[in-house]
Amino acid sequence: MSLPHAHGGPVAEASLKACPEDFQVFECMHVTPEGEGEHLWLEIEKTGWNTEDVAMWLAKAAGIHRLSVGYSGLKDKHAVTRQWFSLHLPGKVDPDFDWPEGVHLMQALRHRRKLNRGTHRANRFVIRATHFCGDADLLEARLDAIAAQGIPNYFGEQRFGRGAGNLVRGKEWLMGGEAPRKKALRSIWLSAVRSDLFNQVLAERVSRGVWNRVLAGDILQPEGSRGLFMADDDAEAAARVISGEVHPTAPMPGVAGMASSGPCRQLEQQILAPSQAVIDGLCREGVDEIRRATRLPVQDLQWSLQQDQEGENTLQVAFRLPAGAFATTVMAELVRSPEPSA
Score class of each variant (00 low, 15 high):
192 A>I: 05
205 R>Y: 08
89 L>Q: 00
140 E>N: 10
92 K>M: 01
167 L>Q: 02
333 E>W: 01
20 P>D: 13
35 G>Q: 05
119 T>Q: 11
229 F>H: 12
330 V>P: 04
211 W>G: 05
232 D>E: 15
228 L>D: 02
272 L>K: 03
167 L>V: 09
14 A>G: 13
278 V>G: 08
19 C>K: 11
326 F>T: 12
4 P>G: 01
203 A>M: 02
85 F>H: 03
33 P>R: 00
263 P>F: 01
6 A>H: 06
16 L>G: 06
137 D>N: 13
224 G>A: 01
73 G>F: 00
284 R>I: 12
161 G>A: 01
103 V>P: 02
255 V>E: 04
208 R>F: 08
315 L>Y: 12
235 A>P: 11
273 A>F: 09
174 L>R: 07
63 G>W: 09
212 N>D: 15
338 P>M: 05
299 Q>A: 15
87 L>A: 04
100 P>N: 07
238 A>K: 07
33 P>D: 02
154 Y>N: 07
213 R>C: 14
207 S>Y: 01
63 G>I: 10
112 R>G: 14
43 E>N: 08
42 L>Q: 05
88 H>M: 09
125 F>Q: 09
195 S>M: 13
161 G>N: 00
113 R>Q: 08
71 Y>P: 08
284 R>K: 10
170 G>P: 12
86 S>L: 08
318 A>P: 09
19 C>M: 00
109 L>A: 10
112 R>S: 15
119 T>P: 07
126 V>R: 15
254 G>K: 03
132 F>L: 13
84 W>Q: 01
327 A>C: 14
154 Y>P: 00
145 A>R: 04
104 H>E: 12
95 P>E: 03
70 G>N: 04
227 G>H: 10
160 F>W: 08
160 F>E: 07
264 C>F: 01
202 L>F: 04
131 H>D: 14
267 L>R: 06
26 F>Q: 12
307 Q>Y: 12
55 A>L: 00
166 N>S: 08
279 I>E: 06
187 S>W: 07
89 L>W: 04
92 K>G: 02
75 K>T: 05
249 T>K: 07
1 M>I: 04
41 W>V: 04
158 Q>C: 09
249 T>G: 06
165 G>D: 10
13 E>N: 12
177 G>Y: 01
198 F>N: 05
99 W>R: 07
130 T>A: 11
153 N>R: 09
238 A>T: 10
190 L>M: 05
245 E>F: 03
45 E>G: 13
202 L>R: 03
149 Q>M: 11
15 S>V: 15
56 M>E: 15
134 G>F: 11
121 R>Q: 14
98 D>A: 15
318 A>W: 11
128 R>W: 07
315 L>H: 11
13 E>Q: 11
282 L>Q: 13
141 A>H: 08
320 R>C: 13
90 P>D: 06
285 E>R: 02
37 G>D: 04
75 K>E: 04
210 V>I: 04
174 L>A: 11
256 A>W: 13
271 I>D: 05
4 P>M: 06
134 G>C: 09
34 E>K: 15
